[in-house]
């Protein structure tokens, strides 16, 4: 009986120490992790709006400024790809055409679905009005990636769906 109590106490205290150590390490690293995410986000935003100098966020919609003049909007679009979640940053011009997109996160197959991050694919979105954001075989103007139709249409649907939602939000205001 005494032996088994000792066992329980030893294991429990090791777990307790582990929890304490990890929560303090987490508290130290958490602001840094958040900062890294922000730096990455700003880089992505800059790649869509090269002239951007500042931005502000409200209810998931980012207003992008260049020297205090608003140049457009940006928002995150989350969708499901063929390997898992896809996260795309969408930039919109003042006239509501697409400025550009950037794939932030995906788990598509390397060499195939992963091509959704490549410039020739993402550059197709720039300058198009939302009506053209459909794959060519569905009447739009976006070329699908050969052999990766699910990934391509996942990217397109993600952008399209989120755009519709965000535009509605903006118009209601």
């Amino acid at each position: 009986m005494k032996e088994s109590w000792k066992r329980v106490i030893v294991l429990t205290s090791i777990v307790a120490i582990s929890v304490v150590v990890l929560s303090s390490i987490y508290n130290i690293t958490e602001p840094e992790i958040a900062k890294q995410k922000e730096i990455k986000f700003e880089e992505m935003l800059q790649s869509i709006f090269p002239s951007a100098t500042d931005y502000s966020e409200k209810e998931g919609i980012y207003e992008v400024y260049s020297d205090n003049k608003r140049v457009g909007y940006a928002f995150m679009a989350d969708g499901k790809g063929y390997g898992g979640d896809i996260e795309i940053l969408v930039g919109v011009n003042e006239d509501k055409t697409i400025k550009g997109i950037k794939v932030l996160k995906h788990t598509e197959t390397p060499g195939l679905g992963a091509k959704i991050t490549e410039r020739w694919f993402t550059d197709q979105f720039g300058g198009k009005s939302i009506g053209d954001i459909r794959l060519k075989e569905e009447g739009g103007k976006i070329d699908a990636i050969t052999g990766a139709t699910i990934s391509s249409s996942a990217a397109v649907d993600t952008v399209y769906g989120e755009y519709m939602e965000k535009i509605k939000m903006m118009e209601e205001k």
Binding site: E3, K6, L11, I14, S18, T29, E30, I33
Partner: peptide, 28 residues
């Protein structure tokens, strides 16, 4: 301090703790 019967779970928790430290530091 560790008795024979619970040594594997104890080892695993200790190792996992250090792996988490590595993982958090790399992320940061």
């Amino acid at each position: 301090v560790i008795s024979k019967e619970v040594r594997i779970p104890c080892f695993i928790v200790i190792i996992a703790t250090f792996v988490t430290i590595v993982s958090l530091s790399l992320q940061a």
